[in-house]
Nucleic acid binder design. Sequence first.
DNA 1: TTAGGGTTAG
Length: 606
Amino acid sequence: MRQSLKSNLVITHTVSRQHNSFFHYDSNAKTYFIEQLQTCKNLISATTTHSNVVKSGLSNDTFTTNHLINCYIRFLKINHAHKLFDEMPQRNVVSWTSLMAGYVTCGRPNTALWLFHQMQGTLVLPNEFTFATLINACSILASLDMGRRIHGRVEVMGFGSNRVVCSSLIDMYGKCNHVDEARMVFDSMCVRNVVSWTSMITTYAQNAQGHHALQLFREFTHLRMEKPNHFMLCSVISACASLGSLGSGKVTHGMVIRLCHDANDVVATALVDMYAKCGCVHYSDKVFRRIPNPSVIPYTSMIVGAAKYGLGTLSLQLFQEMIDRRIKPNDVTFVGVLHACSHSGLIDKGLELFNSMNGKYRVMPDSKHYTCVADMLGRVGRVEEAYQLAKSVHVERDGYSILWGTLLSASRLHGRVDIAFEASRRLIESNQQVAGAYVTLSNAYALAGDWENAHQLRSEMKHTGICKEPGSSWIEIKNSTYVFHAGDVSKCSQANEILSLLKELKHRMKERGYVGRTTGLVFVDIEEEAKEEIVSLHSEKLALAFGLINMPKGVTIRVMKNLRMCRDCHESFKLISDIVERDFVVRDVNRFHHFKNGLCTCGDFW
DNA sequence: TTAGGGTTAG
């Protein structure tokens, strides 16, 4: 790399002879070079200017060299930047911080931390820019220990109230899954801005605390200090998705449109994901089709959404479409298409895609893909093949438990107690998913009629104090959330109604040829997992059924005609109408817009 | 008068 830099300089030296007016240092030349470095559009221009800087005798000037370093970093030429840094007679805090930030940008956060270690051996002191960069490196690495140590230095050196440093700290603690520490930093801030609020909202959203994320977003909007930007809206949409909260998701979508962020691809991708997770893949598709040139991420989001909804053919069509448009799939895309094949019974196609991953698409299969294939084979009863696959691959710690957990479920489902036993043994030995492994193995014994072993395992769990938290699932109906815990319907006021509905659904599904995963075991005390399964299995259909009961179609659209909405709201309504069904729109608009004498005075959806 | 923070798919 260093050799190529020299070559470039030789070439550009020849070129620059044509207009060699910068052989001597003067301040105008310096200003000109800096402007060139800040605005140059390609590496050739950068190296040409570099050559002229050298000829003009400015190569020892710290300020100009810092600009050169940052210019090379802009083109991701970190080795060029580091060589310049090494050759500097005098480096200041900007030189150090620029190079550290460059390494973070180039995906080498560890080198940035190593540079900080080197810097501590000099007389140059770090400033708030340096700390923000270092904390960002810790965030990427999810290195809590290093992050805490740098936080300590931040406080000692008096940068603890800097807004940018604090926002980085919130993000770092969030990425390390330490929500309380992130909140402590957030609460300690005297002045916050949209970035600090976004960091905290994102922390909640990414740590399964969607309700807290939405609550904080409400607080932010009530303050009316700044408008939410696309970063914040993305996190809010993501929180709605994690909660499966369609109502909040649609309201946030309305806000996205009103604040003119609907053309942002990242926001649109978040919406695609949110609608799919809320069970409205049809809306996902509408949002997706409005993205002019979707990259691999929106495509993958749509592929995964369709896959989870059982629309395997749609997933595969989208996959083919992106290949035709020369968009390169990545590892996540393959998780999506394999998942689609698995859930739609497209085994041959799934195996064909899996086998072509490396050769045709240059994506190396990893534990996620092995698990998808094991799941795909297991679902159709090809448990032996799934078992052979799992035994033949080497996977890391987390991937290992997921892969063998999948094998355990498949073997239990198809009565292969031998494989279930081995999968459980592997999980218990690896000290992961231990309680789940005990319960599933116990169920496998019960399914095979081996009640003695089933009870013995349960006794063992009691004696050793292994306890599995009951699973739960939830649905949101008309802005209320209904939570179901495995094996406990007593807290639900509509238990009888729900159970009779489940029976009815099960009956109809059987009529259509559905073969249940659970049999008479479902209502035996020992089988809490089985109950969990039946509740989660039907929750989506339950939501639909409740929808039919409690949300009749035909909420009159005439109401809208009597209302005069402000122009913004009217535009929002028109756009949303294009995306979602009308009866929902009417409810949403009536609920979240404020009307006075038939005139919309709405300033905010919230 | 150069360097720093928050977003989307599994």
